[in-house]
Write a protein that binds this DNA or RNA. Sequence first.
DNA 1: TTTGCGCCTTGACCAAAGTCAATTCAAGGG
DNA 2: CCCTTGAATTGACTTTGGTCAAGGCGCAAA
Lengths: 250, 250
Amino acid sequence: MQDCIYTAAESVERSGLKGLPLFKACQDSFFQKMAKRALTQKHSKGKILFLHGDEARYFYFIQKGLVRLFRETLDGSQVTVDILPAGQVLALRTIFEDDLYPYSAEIVENAEITSYPLSYLKDEIQTNNTLALNMLSSMSRCKRRKEQEIEHREIQNAPQRIGCFLLRLIPQNKEGPVTIHLPYDKTLVAARLGMQPETFSRALSKLKRETGIKIKGATIELDTVQQLVQFSCAACSSEFPCKDLQQREF
Amino acid sequence: MQDCIYTAAESVERSGLKGLPLFKACQDSFFQKMAKRALTQKHSKGKILFLHGDEARYFYFIQKGLVRLFRETLDGSQVTVDILPAGQVLALRTIFEDDLYPYSAEIVENAEITSYPLSYLKDEIQTNNTLALNMLSSMSRCKRRKEQEIEHREIQNAPQRIGCFLLRLIPQNKEGPVTIHLPYDKTLVAARLGMQPETFSRALSKLKRETGIKIKGATIELDTVQQLVQFSCAACSSEFPCKDLQQREF
DNA sequence: TTTGCGCCTTGACCAAAGTCAATTCAAGGG
DNA sequence: CCCTTGAATTGACTTTGGTCAAGGCGCAAA
């Protein structure tokens, strides 16, 4: 089965990197250099992009599709670290570590992904202080997200965690009724939230019973966000309009 | 009750910062400037250093004692983020965020703590790219630790988590018998590992039964680290000699 | 030495989530 | 339109850890 189609190196304009806030401090020369070595590939569902512990030469930008990051233990169980949609970058942080990928990456929805050499980024950051500072705040936010995740897994129960997940999918200041569409399969959402699919299913019904939200397949309707806020955010150390939702991995 | 004793601004030599790898790229002028505004205080157990959400003006270096970082939810439950021993810095990352402390800090063992103005650090990092790069790798490691913590809470059970905690207290390449002394109260260790004291107590007995370690109060003896490695590291995505144990919060 | 206060442990019970298995549902291919 | 396949749900049961309450242990002050 063909699960990967190569295309030529990209033009600067197409480069997704240029649009990212993280790189706004970079000159055109940087993007041009990057674009020359950029490689965009189509991958189909199930493809492993790289494995935890592989030698890292590239970082990736998701043009289209979905990527699941995960780790595997000796005794065979998997932990899903995150699920990244189009527009996200992955494996960036590798440049600060030991040049080994810190997780495995699997395509979970047909994707188009551009790879860039990590070495160029490593060079750039040595001299571009603003880039370094942007990375610092970016990584700091990412770290905050991870800490919050630990917190949530400790004090939120399964239905609350789902409610919290849903709230993060919508514009935070939205008034009145909202319709939410799950961004990926329920099985994946369950994995993302660290629970079993069965638990997710039951917890979602419970959330429905307790808050009165309406569920039809992957579509969820709220009369008002307050329904969920009251239910989920009581077991959270932050105030409701959640900050720093946009950006993700590192 | 007096729970805080002030001492004069420190001499450069005493400054704990200078010894930290994180600041090795900084000039003496920086340390001198810092030292002028440094303030060392003694705090007794129970003192709150700052609260989550407080406006942040200082970061801290623990000269002596123990500090617990935690967050509190609306419905009153607390989550312990970390427990920091002497030699650690805290609240550093505040400079990359919104100038609000990202957690509360409580003295849990009589402590001596030096505070430094965040603003000076903020200035320094604008121009000192090497410092920025050191911070990046430092924060990256810290982030890795947090990710591993999420993983552990998902796939390790309570006894395994304790075993893992113990393994991190000893020189990783140690051969033969080892004696471990818990660095703080069992209640605190329990909180650190995200479990109830009762659960910790029972899980520790179970760990003893399953691995044959010897426990006498806060002292634990192993015939060999392999006893624990086999038991705990099967449910972990990393190989045993755990990396990046030294440094902590940000 | 006694007393008191935390810390720690233990028991009984409960609640939440995981596991295993059976079944239903929905979407895409023939 | 039916069939296949994977996703999702549901039921029954187990396991793990949390909760509540009662005691025990040890250290330090009186």
